[in-house]
Simulated assay, not measured.
Amino acid sequence: FRPYNDFFERTILCNSLVWSCAVTGRPGLTYQEALESEKKARQNLQSFPEPLIIPVLYLTSLTHRSRLHEICDDIFAYVKDRYFVEETVEVIRNNGARLQCRILEVLPPSHQNGFANGHDSNVDGETIIISDSDDSETQNSSFQNGGKKKNAIDPLLFKYKVQPTKKELYESAIVKATQISRRKHLFSRDKLKLFLKQHCEPQDGVIKIKASSLSTYKIEEQDFSYFFPDDPPTFIFSPASRRRGRPPKRILISQEESIVNKQTVTGYRNKTAKERDRLLKQEEMKSLASEKAKLKREKADATNSIKKQQGDKEREKLREEKRKYMEHLKQWSKPRE
């Protein structure tokens, strides 16, 4: 910077609480705090489990919420007790030791004639159902209407075929859901919310996945049975958020942009002026405090010098009296003629 005023204004701007994190959207930060927040948020995004990206986005496409934290709560409640293929988890062995494994396949309960990661399970023989006529009519009508929706299977009933990351232990094994857990802080509510912020946006009052994320991960071409051998969940429906009151008057785009620019410039100038006044006031207070301390020191030095002079006079007086007394004793001790 050549002129000092430019440097002064830039310093005030960097130290002002007008910055926000580009990743999390957190406002009210200084420039340095915003940079640190962005760095930390990007590190959290990089540590998000890759096998969960497509399942989480697919589950997000099934939601109909107007607020992001509601979607986050729905998906976190569903995913926290379920594990997906290629995910790295910790398996508790019979001796209590924890072993890192990779999930190869999700196995549904044996009484469910469903899917196992998108593949039909083989059923030996045929199943014959004997029922009354009324039941058969009801069943036929339900099939005509598309069938009744099945209840979601308890996630603790699923089993998982896992393989240790260290292959020298053994090839693979089938474990219960109660023996599996994710590593701590690997999948948390805050990390999920941060991930959804990067891939979602409001559309007509409802939070939806961005078109770029849909095309990148091909969410519309995915099948839920490939991720998990159960019916897709049905999340709570919440209506689109609408603002109360009359709609605002339409303004031309150029006028609106000029108004926004003027407001931004005015706000920036006001904040800069306030910061400058505050810093000048702090400098004045510091100078007054330093002058006051200087006067106090000078007064203390003067008092000490006066006391020192008085002490020197007292000592000189005592020495003079002692000298006279010694002369008097000397005269007294002389032999008399």
Score class of each variant (00 low, 15 high):
Q163W: 02
R26Y: 03
P109V: 02
S225P: 00
D231W: 07
R278H: 03
S121I: 00
D312E: 15
F224D: 00
K292L: 15
L156R: 14
N145S: 14
L280C: 03
I180C: 13
K313A: 15
K39L: 13
I209P: 00
T138S: 14
Q309N: 11
N15R: 14
H328V: 05
I209K: 03
S131V: 06
Y160T: 11
F115I: 02
N117L: 07
R243W: 06
N270M: 05
I259H: 05
D124S: 04
N140K: 13
D120G: 00
K149S: 14
G96R: 07
V23N: 12
Q282T: 02
P155D: 13
K40A: 15
K193L: 15
E291M: 09
Q46C: 03
K262H: 08
E38V: 07
Q222L: 12
L252S: 15
K274R: 08
K39T: 06
S188E: 12
P49A: 13
L62E: 00
N270R: 05
F224C: 02
K159M: 12
E321C: 11
K262D: 13
I180P: 04
S136E: 02
Q282N: 01
I75L: 14
E168W: 07
R243C: 03
T216S: 08
E90C: 09
D74I: 02
Q282V: 01
D132G: 15
L329V: 03
I236R: 02
T216R: 05
A273Y: 11
V106Q: 04
I236S: 06
S47T: 04
I209D: 05
S258V: 04
K148E: 12
K286R: 09
P248E: 04
K176F: 15
R189E: 09
W19L: 04
Q43D: 06
R2S: 13
P155A: 09
A22Q: 12
N304D: 07
A240F: 08
Y4F: 13
E137A: 15
S20F: 10
D301G: 06
E256N: 14
E291V: 07
I71Q: 12
G28C: 15
T216M: 12
I153T: 11
T216E: 13
V18G: 10
S287L: 14
D73G: 13
I103S: 02
D124H: 01
R242W: 00
E201A: 04
C101A: 15
F187P: 01
D135G: 08
M285V: 11
G311K: 10
E337M: 02
I219N: 04
L17D: 14
E256W: 11
V91E: 02
L107D: 06
